[in-house]
């Protein structure tokens, strides 16, 4: 059987597993987004304890490997009596991890907004809270898109780690197929190709989104 025939043969099964990969990525990035915004606001506007807590969280998550975090959820928590399914361990690890990275992107974006924007908001009688909601966040959301796109692409790729805790996503499916037909290298070529296509398509979509929400006249 040639590589092409093999690919044709295993593609349906792999594509089905790809939906698990996308599901895992999609939910994690969404939870991470909310967490990230909250953490960023906590680091920028929070009082001392909130600032310290948010900072410690972000630094620790970013300073340790995602795989170790995943193992803590899947293998570690049962030793204190908490058992969660493979899918949910992966979801928890990926969301909490992504939240820390997204927090940094948001913080950077918010900090790059000029101080005069908030001054102007306050000068027409907006409260600090309204200023954040109507002026700072809408601008930060636009500024953050390029780094946020990177984060999404990263997460698609790192979701392959879920294979290590038996989540039936793309990588795991490839491994199962390979263990049956013993053509490991070729199977993973096909797997790699699928990741490549997914990543390329996502990048294109995100570029379009960025173009679409761009503020006219700003940037190049």
């Amino acid at each position: 059987m040639s590589l092409l025939e093999l690919a044709w043969d295993i593609l349906p099964s792999l594509l089905k597993a790809t939906t698990v990969t996308l599901e895992l990525t999609g939910i994690s990035i969404a939870i991470g987004l909310i967490l990230g915004i909250l953490l960023a606001l906590g680091r920028l506007y929070g009082n001392k304890p909130i600032y310290a807590l948010a900072t410690a969280y972000v630094e620790f998550i970013r300073g340790t490997p995602l795989l170790v975090q995943l193992f803590i959820f899947y293998f570690g928590l049962p030793s204190i009596g908490i058992n969660i399914s493979p899918f949910f361990s992966a979801l928890a690890a990926f969301s909490l991890n992504s939240g820390a990275y997204q927090a940094e992107y948001f913080r950077g974006a918010i900090q790059s907004i000029k101080g005069g924007q908030m001054l102007a908001a306050r000068s027409i009688g907006m409260s600090r809270f309204k200023g954040i909601v109507f002026i700072v966040i809408p601008q930060a959301l636009r500024l953050v898109i390029p780094s946020w796109s990177n984060e999404l692409i990263y997460l698609v790729k790192y979701s392959s780690l879920a294979y290590m805790v038996q989540v039936p996503e793309l990588m795991a499916r490839g491994k199962i197929i390979a263990s049956r037909n013993f053509r490991t290298f070729e199977v993973f070529l096909v797997v790699a190709f699928i990741y490549l296509i997914v990543v390329l398509i996502l990048s294109k979509i995100l570029d379009l989104v960025e173009e679409k929400v761009k503020i006219p006249g700003l940037g190049t």
């Binding site: 698609v156 392959s160 990588m171 797997v191 790699a192 990741y195 490549l196 990543v199």
Partner: peptide, 9 residues
């Protein structure tokens, strides 16, 4: 574009 884990394999 290819995940590190896939590259390793």
């Amino acid at each position: 574009a290819i995940p590190a884990l896939v590259l390793l394999f």
